[in-house]
Write a protein that binds this DNA or RNA. Sequence first.
DNA 1: ACATACGGGACGCCCCGTTTAT
DNA 2: ATAAACGGGGCGTCCCGTATGT
Lengths: 189, 189, 189, 189
Amino acid sequence: MGTAAGTPRARILETAGRLFYERGYHAVGIDTIVAESGVAKMTLYRHFPSKDALVVAYLERVNGQIEALFDAAVQGIDSPAEQLRAICAAVARLASTPQCLGCAFQMSALEFPGRDHPANQAALAHKRAVRGRLLALAQQARLRDPEQLADQLSLLIDGAWAAARVFGPHSPAASMPAAADLLIAAQQP
Amino acid sequence: MGTAAGTPRARILETAGRLFYERGYHAVGIDTIVAESGVAKMTLYRHFPSKDALVVAYLERVNGQIEALFDAAVQGIDSPAEQLRAICAAVARLASTPQCLGCAFQMSALEFPGRDHPANQAALAHKRAVRGRLLALAQQARLRDPEQLADQLSLLIDGAWAAARVFGPHSPAASMPAAADLLIAAQQP
Amino acid sequence: MGTAAGTPRARILETAGRLFYERGYHAVGIDTIVAESGVAKMTLYRHFPSKDALVVAYLERVNGQIEALFDAAVQGIDSPAEQLRAICAAVARLASTPQCLGCAFQMSALEFPGRDHPANQAALAHKRAVRGRLLALAQQARLRDPEQLADQLSLLIDGAWAAARVFGPHSPAASMPAAADLLIAAQQP
Amino acid sequence: MGTAAGTPRARILETAGRLFYERGYHAVGIDTIVAESGVAKMTLYRHFPSKDALVVAYLERVNGQIEALFDAAVQGIDSPAEQLRAICAAVARLASTPQCLGCAFQMSALEFPGRDHPANQAALAHKRAVRGRLLALAQQARLRDPEQLADQLSLLIDGAWAAARVFGPHSPAASMPAAADLLIAAQQP
DNA sequence: ACATACGGGACGCCCCGTTTAT
DNA sequence: ATAAACGGGGCGTCCCGTATGT
């Protein structure tokens, strides 16, 4: 059970994140998180005022990890078009991993349908940010219709996450980079 | 409430489906379904032995609706490649509708993460069937790599559903048909 | 554990009363009552909207039992003065019983100190009612100062309950009837 | 807050005692005592190894105060019978005071029902001591049945405390001295 | 000596899916 | 068909006693 290392807040966030990702937000109770992280319940509620706040904190952490994934993917690549390809390839690679169970933000958008729920807003903000990053690269690459390409690559990426969830590691996501290459190439002036 | 008409079973299924789709499976309780459908609880349990069975019955109905949507989209079209385009266009059109809240099977795969859960299996079966249909058309169209194209269009379709959920009616899904066209055209021999 | 007999409400009330009386109100939790009475928690909360309400219901039952005790004590006695003596004797007898752990209303007045708490008010109402009964009898007996005698017998009775709690079955309460006789006799005109 | 003066131990004991008396033992938490007495929690636990020990220390202090009350009441009175009367009068006077919320030992006997709990034992010891003092005076006064009189005056005293708790400052306790006088006079040889 | 945090446990109230009685 | 019952779980709060840092 209790991973003995790290500050309690980190242990809580890590355990909660793992359980949320594996079982879903509603299916994981506070008591389970407390038991698995080897922490007192009051400690959890001192660091996170509610379960919703814990979910949001988890989503923020995931957002940072996705950004880091993209950063790492474009590391050392100069051409913006190549960076777009690298990002799509990185997503496809991760989506074909057994550990990948889909996208935490798709989960949060589904499990918290209310548009005013913080977890739902976090999902929207994340997806907007991802599309914004694709759009910026498409613009830098001087492609013909950056908005459209950002849309299309967004669809492929979200399709890859969704496919990973449903199909597991052997999913259509493997064919995603080829599609991305084609869509990018088609927009070269 | 909405005690409109039809056999009790149909009323239950319709009410449950609407609520499931709007709020999620876990968020909708048996009592709510019973109250909204104006049926006694025992009647519900006589038609559906458990909530899981009700969810599965709902998913089967949705599966039929999606098949009907595809059937209608390809109606009167001879060319398999055109049929593929038509299917993608139909999905994009529906996904840009305010009533569309995403894909019920993506929902079930996320809310019932256990691979052995009937609702999860139903999601996998549905997604496999959709891809199978795309694959068959791609093969009929004598495209170069039907498997890959089926993958790629699957990704676009699932991406469109996911985007509809997160972004609402003004989502990247609008750019999906153009991407589909490109991917299909690229595989023409 | 579960006493199998009686309606659930009765089982709950009886179990809760026994535990309250033996251990105190604060020391007995809802879960303990539920477990000991073999009832679902929801069942308890359907019959009693809160723990406070359950306490009050228990106190009302005790109030009825005390009234029944007094009724039985005066049964077949005509003289009001004799009835006063009989009541005091009955209290002394019960207070010298091993099952007697004092007065539930003294408990509730102590454990719920807020004057506006229902359990506190119930205690005050009960004690007022007892004194009122004594006063009525003293007036019927045409004693010299019925108010004073009602006070004095009230003190003896409450003293007997308190002594039973602290001393157990062998308490000063045994000497209560003699004191009551004296106080009554002294007021005979 | 009331960080008036005195050694920390005294401040803790005084604050805890006041809160215990006003709200009850279970209703007052360590944190409240710490906050109200302006002391660090570790300081409290260095002076009192546990909350129970703090309760017992408080009870010992109250015991001393009651003894002092009795000592002051009998000051300058020679006749043992008069001393008995004076003690009862002092109790009745205090019990009719707005500050009086009853007897701390009745409280402890009720809130700690276990016969082996130190606070319960302290209550028994105190009540025995009070009765012992009454008995000694009754014996010195050469009354006919000192044991019985000690019992009866004990009942009146405990009844007065209990009445003060339930009824407030205008309670039957006001009629207690008259009853005590009568009971004492009746035993004069 | 202060202040803050922690682990462990209990608790109050509430909701859910399901079965049984009426 | 109404209504109650049942076991299980969930969230947020509180408390006690100890262990930290300063």
